[in-house]
Design a binder for these strands. Structure first.
Length: 576
RNA sequence: GCCCCCGUAGCUCAGCGGAUAGAGCGAGUGACUUCUAAUCACUUGGUCGCAGGUUCGAGUCCUGCCGGGGGCACCA
């Protein structure tokens, strides 16, 4: 049984052919196997041109030598050499059908488990306590969750952590405001945004209050019991809110995954002491700083990470160094992933350099800022939190579900419960998919219309295709069994089959670059290949053998779409 | 001023150094008594920001420029 992608197998064959015909050692990557978009060719090998240069022979001659030595009769039909030296590879129908038949019985649909699992600590979501989650939190939360799912499926040990903004100076004013409002009034923080804004307003306008807030910060940091209790109330209330959003979104984060700023607080003094001990710090403008090499401010002077502020307090830079130290040393993670917006790129670059200088991370340990573009308003400007016009996350999700419900409501053959469940899957899926289906590094213009669209490259389209596959199978009254005989007569059937075997490559590509959109693109193409097949190839009315074969294709399509969507954190309802 | 990211069809976006740059939306024409029309087929649409360079081959790599965005000392 072939594990993984066919492209890898083809590459191995080409490597062997190059060795035997040209006596050259090349890597599988150098075999340059690519899926081909040429009619009639499934894959192509682009190695001959480069090798021709290397051995000083015409590329077409090299291509002919490779083809002559290629041991691939079980896999591909006689390859054809085209243009300057492209080798067109077409899978035999025998191989393709056999492979499809085998995949039907395979839980992982051909995706291998990694042989070298890693321990991956991933920081994502990271909302602020006492602030309601808004659209700006979608990206980190949804992308992070998808990465967790994909990496776990890949076989890695994944440790998610939610870096809550639950500590620091704002909590002085928040706690004082809580005291003013009456500690027992359990509804006092029910609307977190209003609560925060009121506290802020009082802090700015009432010097008395501001002074109390400052004193409260000192109490908090010195561990005053009563203050900690109040603080805990704020955190708990916020967590209830976060969990509500996570539950709606189908995000797996729980309070167990909380590693907020308050958690790292206990490590800050040691972290800083260690930096001092290693001679990496210096005092600048009264602040204790680390100056990682290669970073400069606008005057051209070295740019610091301020590890202890001039007032003796610790800021986010100390905390982020403490996280790198904690996950790199204490938890021995092999990979540290931070799903945080692009604007913080320089900050993370500095933290990574400083952490390596401090010896907390070895060269074998990867640090990746899984950055993503900003959410922009319709005006193309940054969607600022303080603009007052932010869309609340819960409102957005509710709206998305309502819109989906309006369409599902027309279905009369479903129970109210089914309709609600479908509306939820479709609405939430639309929002998540909108965020996962484009290159995460690019900025994102917020638009209801785009986010809730149900046509084109959207979650709804995939869910719809899946529901149709299952509808056919349901109506057939049969269960498709592994090993069901498959034949590929029509072009639409073969196109679909070829698409279905490429899941492993798509998953790997998405994992390699932490780029979920590579998977969404593949799934969209798969759904598209299915709908073409659906239009052209009747299943239930076909002759028994064809019918069985097409049912098998439907079944495998459904498995691929369902698994793929699951890796993205999107539900695939059996009916729509 | 320095650094980072982006610039592909009217719009939103894919595109792994390979052949004639692809989808969706929009617009136009067809297709539901037939497995779900939340669909499909066909048509329309491009100086890949500009100029050099590397290469057998550049949307993709390098340099410079133009345009947009972001970051650049005690907020995160």
């Amino acid at each position: 049984m072939l594990q993984g992608d066919v492209g890898l197998e083809l590459a191995a064959r080409v490597v062997a052919a190059v060795k035997s015909s040209l006596d050259l050692d090349i890597t599988p990557a150098e075999a340059l196997i690519r899926p081909s978009n040429r009619p009639g060719a499934d894959y192509q090998c682009n190695a001959a041109m480069g090798l021709g240069k290397r051995v000083g022979r015409p590329p077409r001659e090299v291509a002919a030598a490779i083809v002559g030595a290629l041991d691939g009769t079980d896999l591909v039909v006689e390859p054809e050499i085209a243009g300057p030296g492209f080798i067109n590879l077409t899978l035999t129908d025998t191989w393709l059908t056999t492979h499809i038949e085998q995949l039907l019985g395979e839980e992982r649909l051909g995706v291998p488990v990694t042989e070298r699992p890693r321990r991956i600590a991933i920081d994502y979501s990271s909302p602020n306590v006492a602030k309601e989650m808004h659209v700006g939190h979608i990206r980190s939360t949804v992308i992070g969750d998808a990465l967790v799912r994909m990496l776990r499926f890949h076989g890695d040990e994944v440790i998610p952590h939610n870096h809550l903004g639950d500590w620091g100076t704002p909590f002085g004013m928040l706690i004082e405001h809580l005291v003013d409002e009456g500690v027992d009034a359990d509804h006092s923080v029910s609307d977190l945004n209003v609560f925060y804004q009121e506290a802020r307003k009082k802090f700015d306008s009432d010097p008395d209050f501001a002074e109390r807030a400052r004193l409260r910060v000192v109490k908090l940091q010195s561990g005053d019991e009563q203050t900690l209790e109040l603080w805990q109330q704020l955190v708990d209330e916020s967590m209830r809110h976060f969990m509500k959003a996570y539950k709606m979104l189908g995000i797996g984060l729980t309070p167990e995954d909380n590693y907020g700023e308050s958690f790292y607080n206990q490590y800050l003094a040691d972290t800083v002491a260690e930096l001092e001990q290693k001679g990496l710090t210096e005092i600048s403008d009264g602040a204790l700083c680390v100056f990682p090499k290669g970073f400069f401010n606008r005057e051209g002077d070295p740019l610091p990470l301020i590890v202890r502020k001039s007032d003796g307090g610790y800021g986010y830079m100390s905390t982020d160094l403490a996280t790198a130290r904690y996950w790199g040393v204490e938890r021995a993670a092999t990979d540290l992933l931070y799903v945080v917006g692009t604007p913080q790129a320089q900050h993370f670059a500095m933290v990574f350099v400083a952490s390596r200088d401090a010896g907390w991370l070895t060269p074998e340990q990867n640090t990746v800022h899984v950055n993503f573009g900003s959410i922009l308003g319709e005006d193309g400007k940054m969607f600022r939190t303080r603009s007052g016009d932010t869309v609340k996350l819960i409102d957005l999700l509710t709206e998305a579900i309502d819109r989906a419900a309006a369409v599902v409501g027309e279905r009369e053959d479903l129970t109210a419960e089914e309709r609600a469940s479908i509306a939820h899957a479709v609405g939430i899926g639309a929002v998540k998919y909108a965020d996962l289906s484009s290159d995460r590094e690019k900025d994102y213009v917020f638009s209801w219309e785009k986010m809730l669209a149900t046509d084109g490259n959207t979650a709804t389209y995939l869910q719809y295709a899946n529901a149709r596959t299952l509808s056919i199978i349901r109506k057939s009254g049969e269960t498709v069994r592994p090993g069901a005989k498959v034949t590929l007569a029509e072009k639409a059937e073969r196109d679909l089959a070829l698409q279905l075997i490429q899941l492993p490559a798509a998953v790997q590509a998405a994992i390699d670059g932490y780029t979920p959109h590579k998977l969404t693109t593949y799934l969209y193409e798969t759904a598209s290949a299915f709908t073409s097949f659906f239009e052209k190839c009747p299943v239930l009315k076909a002759e028994p053998e064809i019918r069985a074969s097409r049912l098998a294709l439907c079944a495998l399509t459904s498995k691929v779409l369902t698994l793929g969507l699951d890796l993205l954190g999107i539900k695939a309802p059996t009916r729509l």
